[in-house]
């Protein structure tokens, strides 16, 4: 049994949130203008992710180029100090590999790749701190950094996790403690629609509760899209103002 009340009878979670509240979400776009074509920084609770995008550019190898459409490479690395245990994670850690593969699949469909034949788009994600919702934070950071790089996308992909407590109560945006206790899933929602670009289930979520969990996860993703959109628009205004000054 957990050391904590994961969801108390009074309706509060380990960190004081209610079932349908997302964690603190903060993001910046164009966080590292000099070192990349597009960059972003996302904090979802205590999960902190930095994303740098290079491209579209000439691929280094011929094999990476296709005449029909551009190709996408996603690398994820986790800094040793990201988790409590500070273990070294090899690059080929299976979880990390799976994460890269999932992100690649998701954004292959989200980027208008046919606009970039014979080009390579490279996404590098650096995980600085880990406290649940890693795939979600990576997805959001990638969306923002791709936008910063001016790469055409069909729409925002906004992402968040949701789990189920006791087969009854769905909980939105899990932290590490909750992730360890509950079956949960990560969704990536396309823009303001209810279409999913990403759905990854970790542990089991029962069929009978899937609908509840999906509903809250989609609503949460919409909330995150709003917060990202505010940042993108602010940055846009700021940039326009800067251009006008010149």
């Amino acid at each position: 049994m957990s050391r904590f009340e994961i969801y108390s009878p009074e309706g509060l979670r380990v960190d004081g949130r209610r079932w349908n509240e997302i964690r603190r979400f903060e993001c910046r776009i164009n966080s590292h203008p000099t070192s990349s074509d597009g960059s972003s920084y996302v904090e979802q609770g205590n999960t902190k992710v930095l994303c740098l995008v290079q491209g579209p550019m000439e691929p280094a190898l011929r094999s990476q180029s296709s005449t029909a459409q551009g190709s996408l490479i996603v690398n994820v690395s986790v800094t040793p100090f990201a988790t409590v245990e500070r273990n070294k994670r090899p690059r080929n850690d299976r979880r990390i590999q799976e994460l890269s593969a999932t992100l690649t699949r998701t954004f292959n469909k989200a980027i208008v790749l046919k606009n970039y034949p014979r080009s390579l788009i490279q996404v590098n994600l650096q995980v600085l701190a880990l406290d649940g919702g890693l795939l979600a934070a990576c997805t959001n950071a990638t969306t923002l950094a791709l936008m910063d790089a001016g790469i055409s996308m069909y729409d925002y992909i906004s992402s968040v996790t949701a789990g189920i407590f006791d087969g009854q109560t769905p909980l939105l945006d899990l932290n590490t403690i909750e992730e360890n206790e509950l079956g949960f899933l990560t969704v990536g929602v396309i823009g303001e629609s209810e279409k999913l670009a990403l759905l990854l289930m970790e542990d089991r979520v029962g069929m009978d509760s899937l609908e509840k969990v999906l509903a809250i996860a989609i609503a949460g993703s919409h909330r995150i899209r709003e917060l990202m959109d505010i940042q993108v628009r602010n940055y846009g205004k700021h940039k326009v103002a800067k251009l006008a000054n010149q």
């Binding site: 960190d15 004081g16 949130r17 603190r24």
Partner: peptide, 11 residues
């Protein structure tokens, strides 16, 4: 010894 940071929300 390890340092743990947890979020804590006040309402």
């Amino acid at each position: 010894a390890s340092k743990i940071v947890r979020e804590h929300y006040l309402r």
